[in-house]
Nucleic acid binder design. Structure first.
Lengths: 192, 192
DNA sequence: TCCGGATATGAACAGTGTTCAGTCTAGCGT
DNA sequence: ACGCTAGACTGAACACTGTTCATATCCGGA
Protein backbone atom coordinates (compact mmCIF):
# COMPACT_ATOMS: atom_id res chain seq x y z
CA UNK A 1 0.00 0.00 0.00
CA UNK A 2 2.31 2.77 1.25
CA UNK A 3 1.36 5.93 -0.61
CA UNK A 4 -0.94 4.20 -3.04
CA UNK A 5 -4.56 5.30 -2.73
CA UNK A 6 -5.71 2.12 -4.38
CA UNK A 7 -7.94 1.17 -1.47
CA UNK A 8 -10.57 3.84 -1.90
CA UNK A 9 -9.23 6.59 0.33
CA UNK A 10 -8.64 9.04 -2.52
CA UNK A 11 -12.16 10.43 -2.63
CA UNK A 12 -12.14 11.45 1.03
CA UNK A 13 -8.57 12.69 0.79
CA UNK A 14 -9.46 14.93 -2.13
CA UNK A 15 -12.49 16.36 -0.35
CA UNK A 16 -10.34 17.09 2.70
CA UNK A 17 -7.66 18.78 0.64
CA UNK A 18 -10.25 20.72 -1.37
CA UNK A 19 -11.96 21.77 1.84
CA UNK A 20 -8.67 23.14 3.14
CA UNK A 21 -8.07 24.99 -0.13
CA UNK A 22 -11.54 26.50 -0.13
CA UNK A 23 -11.12 27.65 3.46
CA UNK A 24 -7.80 29.26 2.63
CA UNK A 25 -8.33 30.86 -0.75
CA UNK A 26 -11.99 30.60 -1.75
CA UNK A 27 -13.62 28.21 -4.18
CA UNK A 28 -12.77 30.24 -7.30
CA UNK A 29 -9.06 29.89 -6.71
CA UNK A 30 -9.15 26.16 -6.13
CA UNK A 31 -7.29 24.09 -8.71
CA UNK A 32 -7.99 20.44 -9.28
CA UNK A 33 -4.45 19.91 -10.49
CA UNK A 34 -3.00 21.51 -7.38
CA UNK A 35 -5.11 19.28 -5.17
CA UNK A 36 -3.96 16.21 -7.05
CA UNK A 37 -0.35 17.33 -6.78
CA UNK A 38 -0.65 17.89 -3.04
CA UNK A 39 -1.84 14.31 -2.75
CA UNK A 40 0.92 12.94 -5.04
CA UNK A 41 -1.60 11.76 -7.54
CA UNK A 42 -2.14 12.33 -11.23
CA UNK A 43 -4.76 14.98 -12.06
CA UNK A 44 -6.84 12.49 -13.99
CA UNK A 45 -7.16 10.24 -10.94
CA UNK A 46 -9.88 12.54 -9.67
CA UNK A 47 -12.22 11.48 -12.44
CA UNK A 48 -12.59 8.00 -10.98
CA UNK A 49 -14.44 9.53 -8.04
CA UNK A 50 -15.93 12.79 -9.28
CA UNK A 51 -17.60 13.63 -12.56
CA UNK A 52 -16.36 17.17 -12.52
CA UNK A 53 -14.37 19.74 -10.66
CA UNK A 54 -17.77 21.13 -9.71
CA UNK A 55 -18.79 17.70 -8.47
CA UNK A 56 -15.87 17.74 -6.05
CA UNK A 57 -16.73 21.27 -4.98
CA UNK A 58 -20.32 20.18 -4.35
CA UNK A 59 -18.99 17.57 -1.95
CA UNK A 60 -17.07 20.30 -0.16
CA UNK A 61 -20.20 22.42 -0.07
CA UNK A 62 -22.03 19.57 1.60
CA UNK A 63 -19.34 19.58 4.29
CA UNK A 64 -20.02 23.26 4.77
CA UNK A 65 -23.71 22.64 5.27
CA UNK A 66 -22.91 19.88 7.74
CA UNK A 67 -20.54 22.15 9.66
CA UNK A 68 -23.22 24.82 9.93
CA UNK A 69 -25.74 22.24 11.03
CA UNK A 70 -23.41 20.98 13.73
CA UNK A 71 -22.88 24.47 15.12
CA UNK A 72 -26.62 24.85 15.39
CA UNK A 73 -27.00 21.44 17.02
CA UNK A 74 -24.55 22.47 19.69
CA UNK A 75 -26.67 25.53 20.43
CA UNK A 76 -29.78 23.41 20.83
CA UNK A 77 -27.94 21.02 23.14
CA UNK A 78 -26.96 23.96 25.31
CA UNK A 79 -30.56 25.05 25.88
CA UNK A 80 -32.60 21.89 26.33
CA UNK A 81 -35.21 22.82 28.96
CA UNK A 82 -38.77 23.26 27.75
CA UNK A 83 -39.26 26.75 29.15
CA UNK A 84 -40.02 30.14 27.59
CA UNK A 85 -36.57 31.44 28.42
CA UNK A 86 -34.88 28.44 26.85
CA UNK A 87 -37.06 28.82 23.74
CA UNK A 88 -35.91 32.43 23.43
CA UNK A 89 -32.31 31.39 23.95
CA UNK A 90 -32.60 28.68 21.31
CA UNK A 91 -33.97 31.09 18.73
CA UNK A 92 -31.37 33.78 19.33
CA UNK A 93 -28.61 31.22 19.64
CA UNK A 94 -29.45 29.59 16.33
CA UNK A 95 -29.38 32.94 14.60
CA UNK A 96 -26.09 33.83 16.20
CA UNK A 97 -24.60 30.49 15.18
CA UNK A 98 -25.69 31.03 11.59
CA UNK A 99 -24.05 34.46 11.48
CA UNK A 100 -20.94 33.26 13.29
CA UNK A 101 -20.52 30.58 10.66
CA UNK A 102 -20.77 33.20 7.93
CA UNK A 103 -18.20 35.37 9.68
CA UNK A 104 -15.46 32.87 10.34
CA UNK A 105 -16.04 30.47 7.45
CA UNK A 106 -16.61 33.11 4.79
CA UNK A 107 -15.28 31.16 1.83
CA UNK A 108 -17.00 27.95 2.81
CA UNK A 109 -20.26 29.82 3.26
CA UNK A 110 -19.90 31.33 -0.20
CA UNK A 111 -19.39 27.91 -1.75
CA UNK A 112 -22.15 26.18 0.20
CA UNK A 113 -24.78 28.71 -0.80
CA UNK A 114 -23.22 29.73 -4.10
CA UNK A 115 -24.17 28.95 -7.70
CA UNK A 116 -22.22 25.70 -7.85
CA UNK A 117 -24.02 23.91 -5.04
CA UNK A 118 -27.53 25.09 -5.87
CA UNK A 119 -29.49 24.08 -2.79
CA UNK A 120 -32.17 21.92 -4.42
CA UNK A 121 -35.54 22.91 -2.98
CA UNK A 122 -36.96 23.27 0.48
CA UNK A 123 -38.64 19.84 0.29
CA UNK A 124 -38.70 17.07 1.06
CA UNK A 125 -37.66 18.28 4.47
CA UNK A 126 -35.43 21.18 3.66
CA UNK A 127 -31.86 21.54 4.84
CA UNK A 128 -30.98 20.95 8.46
CA UNK A 129 -30.32 24.59 9.38
CA UNK A 130 -33.64 25.69 7.89
CA UNK A 131 -35.58 23.04 9.81
CA UNK A 132 -33.93 23.93 13.10
CA UNK A 133 -34.71 27.60 12.67
CA UNK A 134 -38.35 26.88 11.91
CA UNK A 135 -38.66 24.51 14.86
CA UNK A 136 -37.33 27.24 17.14
CA UNK A 137 -39.96 29.56 15.70
CA UNK A 138 -42.65 26.97 16.41
CA UNK A 139 -41.46 26.76 20.00
CA UNK A 140 -41.75 30.50 20.45
CA UNK A 141 -45.27 30.29 19.05
CA UNK A 142 -46.18 27.41 21.34
CA UNK A 143 -45.24 29.50 24.36
CA UNK A 144 -47.26 32.41 23.02
CA UNK A 145 -44.18 34.61 22.75
CA UNK A 146 -44.75 35.81 19.20
CA UNK A 147 -46.63 39.03 18.56
CA UNK A 148 -50.22 37.98 17.85
CA UNK A 149 -51.21 37.38 14.25
CA UNK A 150 -47.69 37.41 12.87
CA UNK A 151 -47.05 33.69 12.58
CA UNK A 152 -48.09 33.13 8.96
CA UNK A 153 -45.33 34.06 6.58
CA UNK A 154 -42.89 34.52 9.43
CA UNK A 155 -40.90 31.44 8.34
CA UNK A 156 -39.94 33.13 5.13
CA UNK A 157 -39.14 36.46 6.77
CA UNK A 158 -36.91 34.99 9.45
CA UNK A 159 -35.16 32.67 7.06
CA UNK A 160 -34.59 35.40 4.49
CA UNK A 161 -33.45 37.91 7.10
CA UNK A 162 -31.00 35.53 8.75
CA UNK A 163 -29.58 34.23 5.50
CA UNK A 164 -29.50 37.74 4.08
CA UNK A 165 -27.69 39.14 7.09
CA UNK A 166 -25.17 36.33 6.70
CA UNK A 167 -24.51 37.22 3.07
CA UNK A 168 -24.17 40.91 3.93
CA UNK A 169 -21.54 39.97 6.50
CA UNK A 170 -19.78 37.76 3.98
CA UNK A 171 -19.77 40.48 1.33
CA UNK A 172 -18.32 42.91 3.83
CA UNK A 173 -21.30 45.21 3.30
CA UNK A 174 -21.78 45.27 7.06
CA UNK A 175 -19.23 44.97 9.88
CA UNK A 176 -19.16 41.87 12.10
CA UNK A 177 -20.30 43.89 15.09
CA UNK A 178 -23.65 44.37 13.39
CA UNK A 179 -24.45 40.67 13.90
CA UNK A 180 -25.33 41.10 17.55
CA UNK A 181 -27.45 44.15 16.88
CA UNK A 182 -29.30 42.26 14.19
CA UNK A 183 -30.16 39.33 16.44
CA UNK A 184 -31.46 41.59 19.21
CA UNK A 185 -33.51 43.71 16.83
CA UNK A 186 -35.00 40.61 15.29
CA UNK A 187 -36.02 39.20 18.66
CA UNK A 188 -37.51 42.54 19.64
CA UNK A 189 -39.45 42.73 16.39
CA UNK A 190 -41.17 39.36 16.42
CA UNK A 191 -41.62 38.66 20.15
CA UNK A 192 -43.11 40.71 22.93
CA UNK B 1 -12.96 54.35 -38.72
CA UNK B 2 -15.03 51.41 -40.01
CA UNK B 3 -14.51 48.48 -37.62
CA UNK B 4 -11.46 49.94 -35.98
CA UNK B 5 -12.06 50.81 -32.33
CA UNK B 6 -9.11 53.11 -32.38
CA UNK B 7 -11.20 56.06 -31.28
CA UNK B 8 -11.84 55.04 -27.71
CA UNK B 9 -15.06 53.09 -28.03
CA UNK B 10 -13.49 49.77 -27.06
CA UNK B 11 -13.97 50.11 -23.31
CA UNK B 12 -17.72 50.64 -23.58
CA UNK B 13 -18.03 47.99 -26.28
CA UNK B 14 -16.29 45.43 -24.07
CA UNK B 15 -18.50 46.24 -21.10
CA UNK B 16 -21.58 45.86 -23.32
CA UNK B 17 -20.42 42.54 -24.69
CA UNK B 18 -19.42 41.31 -21.24
CA UNK B 19 -22.79 42.39 -19.87
CA UNK B 20 -24.51 40.35 -22.55
CA UNK B 21 -22.32 37.34 -21.77
CA UNK B 22 -22.97 37.59 -18.06
CA UNK B 23 -26.70 37.82 -18.65
CA UNK B 24 -26.62 34.76 -20.86
CA UNK B 25 -24.22 32.40 -19.12
CA UNK B 26 -23.23 33.81 -15.75
CA UNK B 27 -20.01 35.55 -14.76
CA UNK B 28 -18.04 32.34 -14.15
CA UNK B 29 -18.43 31.24 -17.77
CA UNK B 30 -17.38 34.56 -19.23
CA UNK B 31 -14.17 34.49 -21.24
CA UNK B 32 -12.13 37.57 -21.94
CA UNK B 33 -10.81 36.01 -25.12
CA UNK B 34 -14.31 35.25 -26.35
CA UNK B 35 -15.38 38.82 -25.71
CA UNK B 36 -12.39 40.13 -27.64
CA UNK B 37 -13.10 37.75 -30.49
CA UNK B 38 -16.75 38.83 -30.67
CA UNK B 39 -15.50 42.40 -31.07
CA UNK B 40 -12.87 41.45 -33.69
CA UNK B 41 -10.10 42.57 -31.43
CA UNK B 42 -7.00 40.92 -30.06
CA UNK B 43 -7.33 39.60 -26.49
CA UNK B 44 -4.53 41.81 -25.25
CA UNK B 45 -6.36 44.95 -26.40
CA UNK B 46 -8.48 44.71 -23.27
CA UNK B 47 -5.50 45.55 -21.10
CA UNK B 48 -5.37 49.11 -22.39
CA UNK B 49 -8.68 49.76 -20.65
CA UNK B 50 -8.92 47.28 -17.80
CA UNK B 51 -6.30 46.07 -15.37
CA UNK B 52 -7.83 42.64 -15.10
CA UNK B 53 -10.58 40.38 -16.21
CA UNK B 54 -12.04 41.07 -12.76
CA UNK B 55 -11.73 44.78 -13.42
CA UNK B 56 -13.94 44.40 -16.48
CA UNK B 57 -16.40 42.29 -14.51
CA UNK B 58 -16.53 44.96 -11.82
CA UNK B 59 -17.60 47.44 -14.46
CA UNK B 60 -20.36 45.04 -15.47
CA UNK B 61 -21.34 44.67 -11.84
CA UNK B 62 -21.67 48.43 -11.59
CA UNK B 63 -24.09 48.29 -14.53
CA UNK B 64 -26.09 45.73 -12.57
CA UNK B 65 -26.31 48.01 -9.56
CA UNK B 66 -27.37 50.88 -11.83
CA UNK B 67 -30.05 48.72 -13.44
CA UNK B 68 -31.45 47.78 -10.04
CA UNK B 69 -31.37 51.40 -8.96
CA UNK B 70 -33.26 52.45 -12.07
CA UNK B 71 -36.00 49.89 -11.46
CA UNK B 72 -36.42 51.28 -7.98
CA UNK B 73 -36.45 54.86 -9.26
CA UNK B 74 -39.30 53.97 -11.58
CA UNK B 75 -41.28 52.66 -8.64
CA UNK B 76 -40.77 55.88 -6.71
CA UNK B 77 -41.82 57.93 -9.72
CA UNK B 78 -45.04 55.93 -9.90
CA UNK B 79 -46.04 56.79 -6.33
CA UNK B 80 -45.13 60.42 -5.79
CA UNK B 81 -47.92 61.78 -3.56
CA UNK B 82 -47.03 62.48 0.05
CA UNK B 83 -49.79 60.36 1.57
CA UNK B 84 -49.83 57.31 3.84
CA UNK B 85 -51.09 55.09 1.06
CA UNK B 86 -48.37 56.22 -1.31
CA UNK B 87 -45.75 55.65 1.39
CA UNK B 88 -47.00 52.10 1.79
CA UNK B 89 -47.00 51.61 -1.97
CA UNK B 90 -43.46 52.93 -2.24
CA UNK B 91 -42.15 50.56 0.42
CA UNK B 92 -43.83 47.47 -1.02
CA UNK B 93 -43.01 48.51 -4.55
CA UNK B 94 -39.32 48.95 -3.80
CA UNK B 95 -39.18 45.50 -2.24
CA UNK B 96 -40.98 43.99 -5.18
CA UNK B 97 -38.61 45.71 -7.61
CA UNK B 98 -35.60 44.36 -5.73
CA UNK B 99 -36.94 40.81 -5.89
CA UNK B 100 -38.05 41.16 -9.50
CA UNK B 101 -34.52 42.17 -10.42
CA UNK B 102 -33.16 39.10 -8.68
CA UNK B 103 -35.66 36.88 -10.49
CA UNK B 104 -35.14 38.02 -14.05
CA UNK B 105 -31.53 39.13 -13.89
CA UNK B 106 -30.25 36.21 -11.86
CA UNK B 107 -26.73 36.11 -13.26
CA UNK B 108 -26.27 39.85 -13.13
CA UNK B 109 -27.49 39.89 -9.53
CA UNK B 110 -24.99 37.19 -8.62
CA UNK B 111 -22.14 39.19 -10.11
CA UNK B 112 -23.20 42.53 -8.65
CA UNK B 113 -23.38 41.19 -5.11
CA UNK B 114 -20.79 38.46 -5.52
CA UNK B 115 -17.21 38.15 -4.29
CA UNK B 116 -15.68 39.92 -7.31
CA UNK B 117 -17.50 43.21 -6.88
CA UNK B 118 -17.25 43.43 -3.10
CA UNK B 119 -19.64 46.25 -2.28
CA UNK B 120 -17.21 48.56 -0.47
CA UNK B 121 -18.94 49.75 2.71
CA UNK B 122 -22.23 51.36 3.51
CA UNK B 123 -20.62 54.83 3.71
CA UNK B 124 -20.19 57.43 2.53
CA UNK B 125 -23.83 57.27 1.52
CA UNK B 126 -24.31 53.62 0.74
CA UNK B 127 -25.52 52.25 -2.55
CA UNK B 128 -28.56 53.72 -4.23
CA UNK B 129 -30.92 50.80 -3.60
CA UNK B 130 -30.06 50.73 0.09
CA UNK B 131 -30.67 54.46 0.47
CA UNK B 132 -34.03 54.28 -1.29
CA UNK B 133 -35.20 51.43 0.91
CA UNK B 134 -34.23 53.28 4.06
CA UNK B 135 -35.90 56.50 2.87
CA UNK B 136 -39.12 54.55 2.28
CA UNK B 137 -38.83 53.22 5.81
CA UNK B 138 -38.40 56.75 7.14
CA UNK B 139 -41.53 57.80 5.30
CA UNK B 140 -43.54 55.02 6.91
CA UNK B 141 -42.22 56.15 10.27
CA UNK B 142 -43.06 59.79 9.56
CA UNK B 143 -46.69 58.84 8.95
CA UNK B 144 -46.73 56.80 12.12
CA UNK B 145 -47.40 53.58 10.24
CA UNK B 146 -44.71 51.48 11.89
CA UNK B 147 -45.52 49.39 14.93
CA UNK B 148 -44.45 51.51 17.90
CA UNK B 149 -40.96 51.05 19.26
CA UNK B 150 -39.69 48.98 16.34
CA UNK B 151 -37.83 51.65 14.41
CA UNK B 152 -34.33 51.18 15.82
CA UNK B 153 -32.55 48.34 14.13
CA UNK B 154 -35.30 48.00 11.55
CA UNK B 155 -32.98 49.27 8.79
CA UNK B 156 -30.78 46.24 9.18
CA UNK B 157 -33.67 43.79 9.41
CA UNK B 158 -35.45 45.09 6.33
CA UNK B 159 -32.28 45.33 4.31
CA UNK B 160 -31.11 41.86 5.31
CA UNK B 161 -34.52 40.33 4.75
CA UNK B 162 -34.99 41.86 1.33
CA UNK B 163 -31.48 41.09 0.16
CA UNK B 164 -31.68 37.62 1.69
CA UNK B 165 -34.97 36.85 0.01
CA UNK B 166 -33.42 37.93 -3.27
CA UNK B 167 -30.49 35.54 -2.84
CA UNK B 168 -32.85 32.70 -1.88
CA UNK B 169 -34.74 33.32 -5.11
CA UNK B 170 -31.51 33.42 -7.07
CA UNK B 171 -30.26 30.19 -5.55
CA UNK B 172 -33.54 28.51 -6.40
CA UNK B 173 -34.07 27.70 -2.74
CA UNK B 174 -37.49 29.28 -2.96
CA UNK B 175 -39.91 29.51 -5.94
CA UNK B 176 -40.59 32.88 -7.60
CA UNK B 177 -44.18 32.84 -6.37
CA UNK B 178 -42.87 33.24 -2.84
CA UNK B 179 -41.77 36.78 -3.62
CA UNK B 180 -45.27 38.22 -3.36
CA UNK B 181 -45.98 36.36 -0.14
CA UNK B 182 -42.76 37.68 1.31
CA UNK B 183 -43.55 41.31 0.56
CA UNK B 184 -47.04 41.06 2.06
CA UNK B 185 -45.81 39.30 5.20
CA UNK B 186 -43.11 41.88 5.64
CA UNK B 187 -45.57 44.76 5.38
CA UNK B 188 -47.90 43.03 7.82
CA UNK B 189 -45.06 42.46 10.27
CA UNK B 190 -43.67 45.98 10.52
CA UNK B 191 -46.75 48.17 9.97
CA UNK B 192 -50.16 48.16 11.57
C1' DT C 1 5.14 68.01 -41.45
C1' DC C 2 6.79 65.51 -37.84
C1' DC C 3 6.40 63.64 -33.33
C1' DG C 4 4.56 61.39 -29.19
C1' DG C 5 1.32 59.03 -26.75
C1' DA C 6 -2.40 56.22 -26.75
C1' DT C 7 -4.11 52.03 -28.92
C1' DA C 8 -4.09 47.50 -31.01
C1' DT C 9 -1.35 43.33 -32.48
C1' DG C 10 0.76 38.56 -32.36
C1' DA C 11 3.41 35.50 -30.33
C1' DA C 12 4.58 33.46 -26.20
C1' DC C 13 4.13 31.72 -21.20
C1' DA C 14 2.16 29.43 -17.59
C1' DG C 15 -1.66 27.58 -16.09
C1' DT C 16 -6.37 25.34 -16.30
C1' DG C 17 -10.17 21.30 -16.77
C1' DT C 18 -10.91 17.22 -19.27
C1' DT C 19 -10.22 12.96 -22.22
C1' DC C 20 -8.30 8.67 -23.40
C1' DA C 21 -5.38 4.66 -24.35
C1' DG C 22 -2.90 1.98 -21.74
C1' DT C 23 -0.81 -0.01 -17.10
C1' DC C 24 -1.06 -1.94 -12.78
C1' DT C 25 -2.94 -4.49 -9.08
C1' DA C 26 -6.26 -6.16 -5.48
C1' DG C 27 -9.40 -9.51 -4.78
C1' DC C 28 -13.07 -12.62 -6.48
C1' DG C 29 -14.58 -17.17 -8.64
C1' DT C 30 -13.14 -21.50 -9.85
C1' DA D 1 -3.40 -21.73 -6.09
C1' DC D 2 -4.42 -19.83 -10.29
C1' DG D 3 -6.05 -16.72 -13.83
C1' DC D 4 -9.04 -12.96 -14.75
C1' DT D 5 -11.74 -9.04 -14.38
C1' DA D 6 -13.16 -4.64 -12.59
C1' DG D 7 -11.56 -0.70 -10.62
C1' DA D 8 -7.88 2.63 -9.67
C1' DC D 9 -4.18 5.19 -11.48
C1' DT D 10 -0.84 7.18 -15.02
C1' DG D 11 1.08 10.13 -18.84
C1' DA D 12 0.48 12.42 -22.70
C1' DA D 13 -2.39 15.13 -25.23
C1' DC D 14 -6.18 18.69 -26.39
C1' DA D 15 -8.40 22.84 -26.19
C1' DC D 16 -8.90 26.24 -23.60
C1' DT D 17 -7.88 30.20 -20.13
C1' DG D 18 -5.70 35.00 -18.32
C1' DT D 19 -1.68 37.72 -18.78
C1' DT D 20 2.74 39.85 -20.59
C1' DC D 21 5.69 42.13 -23.76
C1' DA D 22 8.01 43.72 -27.82
C1' DT D 23 6.33 45.44 -31.92
C1' DA D 24 3.48 47.96 -35.14
C1' DT D 25 -0.10 51.31 -36.16
C1' DC D 26 -2.87 55.36 -35.93
C1' DC D 27 -4.49 60.25 -34.38
C1' DG D 28 -4.20 64.86 -32.74
C1' DG D 29 -1.36 68.78 -31.47
C1' DA D 30 2.99 71.57 -32.20
Amino acid sequence: MSRSYHHGALAEAMVDQALASVRGQGADQVSLRAIAQALDVSPSAAYNHFADKDDLLRAVGACGLAALDERMSRVLAAHLPDTPDAARARFSGLGRAYLAFAIDETHLFQLTFGPICEVKEIPPEGTGPYLKLMAALDDLDRWGLLKSGTRDGLDLIVWAATHGMATLLVEGAVPPEAAGVFIDSMARLITD
